[in-house]
Amino acid sequence: MPENNTVAVTSLEKKFGNFTAVNRINFEVSGGEIFGFLGPNGAGKSTTIRMLCGIISPTSGSGKVGGFDIIKEQGKIKQNIGYMSQRFSLYDDLTVEENIDFYSGIYRVPKDEKQARKEKIIGLAGLEAFRHRLTSTLSGGWKQRLALGCAIIHKPKIIFLDEPTSGVDPITRNNFWAIIKDMARNGITVFVTTHYMDEAENCGRMALIYKGSIIAMGTPEEMKTKIMKNTVLDIRVAKGEDWLDKIETLKGVEEAALFGVSIHAVVKDERAAIDAIKDIFKRSGLKDYKVTKIKATLEDVFVSLIEDYDKEHDESKKS
């Protein structure tokens, strides 16, 4: 079966009354890929995941997860996917082992494999010394890895991670992503939502969803080059915070923000903007400054994509 670890949806739509939560989206995820599903809160990420996992049915459109129809074969989908949410769905009043045993029973892991898989998860989460500890006494990173372990106890081919790293420290997040990448190398398809833009770099491909629509899709590199129409300028100047307002209100500057010691400005027309910025510095007699074009970060890309989208839709509403 070539498609047993792929995801594909065609004009998938979900309406709640008059509100369109997901607006006819299309995408494909191939086997073993880490696919990032990004977007601000309320953009439709969770609704999409819920449709893919067979919890709710779409209003229209179709989709397949692991080769199973998301409308007709929800039961089979559930048996073949793993799911982990930001809430780490563990029972705090059960021990590490009891949590694993519980999910192992729910997914009906074959009896002769139960012990081996349990050991593997305990190893993966690094919980050898804490197997009889109550889950409530574990720190966030351990809980996160234990939750991931419980979500893959039945060896799913596709795993859905809904904001899996929120509320965890950066080192733990890196560890976590190492595990995720390892899983992908072993052929498991990973569908992940996050709002940490630096994390999105870990994805093979990603889609940006905003107000129910996918407004961009591609590899991180494509996002930063082809899809990003604007340029990011790095402006190094003393007392950057004093200049921020002036630069932000310049014509041709879409957005400006403090970024460490410098200001990052997203601009439409590179040459015109550089001239305008140099001009205000010159007029106040400042000489010690530096304006350079830099590569956009994913965050820059998303922010300008979302602003472009909002502008476009505001204009289309007015006309």
Binding site: Q79, I81, Y83, S85, F88, S89, D92, I106, R108
Partner: peptide
């Protein structure tokens, strides 16, 4: 409240 219901709903349990 603790979110485990969500996890159970995604599992094959009827």
């Amino acid at each position: 409240e603790i979110g485990t219901m969500e996890q159970l709903v995604v599992s094959p349990i009827t």
